[in-house]
Structures are given as C-alpha cells and as structure tokens.
Simulated scan of single mutants.
Amino acid sequence: MASQQAHQEIEEYLGQVPSWMETIAEPASDHSWGLFRDLVLAETELSEREKGLVGLGVAAAIGCPYCTYFHKQEAQLADVSDAELEEAINVASNTRYFSTILHGNEIDHDEFVAETDEIVDYIQQQEAAPADD
C-alpha cells in the first residue's frame, strides 16, 4: 500500500486510488506511483496524444487487455480518433511481426544495423534531391 502522501496524491490526480494500485508491494508502491505519475500523467517530451498512442501500441503488442483499455481511454481523452487508434495498433502489429521474423531467423544484428543505416542514408538523399520539373 502506498504511503499516506502518495495515497492523497493519487486521489488528487485520479479521483480515487484504483484497487490494482493497492496490490503493489510496500517497498515499490510509492516508487511505482511516481513512475506512473511522472511518465504518464506529467508534462514530458511526448504529448498526451503521443503517450496514448505509444501505450496503446505496446499494450496491443503484448496482449494486455488492462493496458489496452487504459491507453485507449488515455488516447481518446487526448482527442485521438478511432482511425488513429486502429493505425497505432496496426503499426504495433507490424513491428511485432517483423521482430518475430528477425529473431526467429537469427538475423545478424550488425548486418541489420549496417543495412538500415544505408537505407536511411538513401532516403535522406532522395528527400534532399531537387525535384525534377
């Protein structure tokens, strides 16, 4: 259970202390709340929209119905459209799909990095090239 101070802070932010937060072991409860508060609820480098979409993509990829529901609600609070939610899930699925291929085939990491760097350089050159009239 979180300390009295953390308990009050959670209620201020969320209107209640969710029951699942009560299951976090004593040594980690205040720290866990701090991580959640500072990364999910606080102003950070990522916008609320971006955090919601990243969270939803990860939640969908790991198959967590709790996190999927939470991050979908989080994204909708940030005015993310249904089409954007669907695309975020599809991007996550695409990443997981290709990760399975790369890991399952034991692709050499150094070769993968070198090829990716070459591809990025090529794309940057294409974008910087003047358009033919």
Rank of each mutant, 00 (worst) to 15 (best):
S3K: 10
Q8N: 14
E9L: 08
I10M: 13
E11V: 15
E11F: 05
L14W: 10
G15S: 07
G15T: 09
G15L: 08
Q16H: 12
Q16Y: 12
V17N: 08
S19Y: 11
M21E: 05
M21T: 11
E22H: 10
E22Q: 10
T23S: 14
T23Y: 11
T23I: 10
I24V: 15
A25N: 04
A28D: 12
S29Y: 07
D30M: 05
H31F: 11
S32G: 02
G34E: 11
D38Q: 09
D38N: 13
D38M: 01
D38P: 00
D38W: 00
L39H: 03
L39N: 04
V40F: 07
V40G: 00
L41D: 08
A42V: 02
A42I: 00
E43P: 00
T44P: 02
T44V: 06
T44E: 05
E45G: 04
L46W: 04
E48N: 04
R49K: 06
R49C: 05
E50F: 01
K51G: 04
G52N: 02
G52W: 05
L53H: 01
L53S: 00
V54E: 02
L56C: 02
G57D: 00
G57N: 05
V58G: 00
A59L: 04
A59Y: 03
A59F: 01
A59G: 07
A61M: 03
I62Y: 08
G63H: 06
G63F: 01
P65H: 09
Y66S: 03
T68A: 10
H71A: 00
K72F: 05
Q73K: 13
E74P: 00
Q76N: 00
S81E: 03
S81T: 15
S81C: 06
D82Q: 08
D82H: 02
A83M: 06
E84W: 03
L85W: 10
E86F: 13
A88D: 10
A88I: 06
N90Q: 15
N90I: 11
N90Y: 14
V91R: 06
A92K: 13
A92V: 09
A92I: 04
T95K: 12
R96I: 11
R96Q: 11
R96W: 08
T100D: 14
I101D: 12
L102V: 14
L102M: 15
G104P: 06
E106D: 14
D108E: 15
D110T: 14
D110F: 06
E111Y: 01
E111F: 04
E111I: 08
F112R: 11
F112C: 09
F112K: 10
A114L: 13
A114F: 07
E115R: 14
E115V: 13
D117W: 11
D117T: 09
E118F: 05
E118N: 10
I119G: 04
D121R: 14
Q126S: 07
Q126W: 10
Q126T: 13
Q126F: 07
E127Y: 09
A129M: 06
A131C: 02
A131D: 04
D132F: 02
